[in-house]
């Protein structure tokens, strides 16, 4: 179990998603830009032109570098592009949750939580 100190400063939800997913979640009020000069955003809009390395970099930034992120939301089809990185992520904080997007419904087969369940039952 993580100590209280490990999560007391973690308060933001980060998003790695397509434009509609990010827009919707920002409309819900999760978007945050830190004070200048850093002005770090807690979201990344991914389109077809976005390099996989940029997604990996954002994932690392939200999961490893930043200590104020509690949950990282990532569209499942984008998580597929960095699948190894997502599946091998085991830290207690932040939580990484895969969410559906407009064009890609949620697939339980790819969900890392349900993958662990299958492993537990020896499948």
């Amino acid at each position: 179990m993580a100590t209280t100190a490990a999560f007391k400063d973690r308060q933001f939800i980060a998003v790695i998603g397509d434009e509609d997913s990010v827009t919707g979640l920002l409309l819900a009020g999760v978007g945050h830009v830190t004070s200048p000069p850093d002005s770090q955003k807690n979201f990344l809009v991914v389109d077809q032109k976005t390099e996989t390395s940029a997604i990996e970099h954002a994932f690392d930034r939200f999961t490893t570098e930043r200590k104020d992120i509690a949950i990282v939301l990532i569209n499942q089809h984008i998580a597929d592009r960095i699948r190894h990185r997502v599946d091998t992520y085991t830290a207690a904080f932040p939580s990484v949750l895969e969410i559906p997007s407009k064009d890609h419904p949620y697939d339980p087969e790819k969900d890392s939580v349900l993958k662990r369940v299958r492993r537990l039952f020896g499948e």
Binding site: M1, T4, F7, K8, R10, Q11, F12, I13, E19, D20, V22, T23, L26, A28, G29, V30, G31, H32, V33, S39, N42, V45, A70, I71, F93
Partner: peptide
Amino acid sequence: YGQDYYDERMQALRTVYVLP
């Protein structure tokens, strides 16, 4: 309605509390 209109100074209205 997309990223062209995002406010670059946005502040989170919803934050997470993790309770032990």
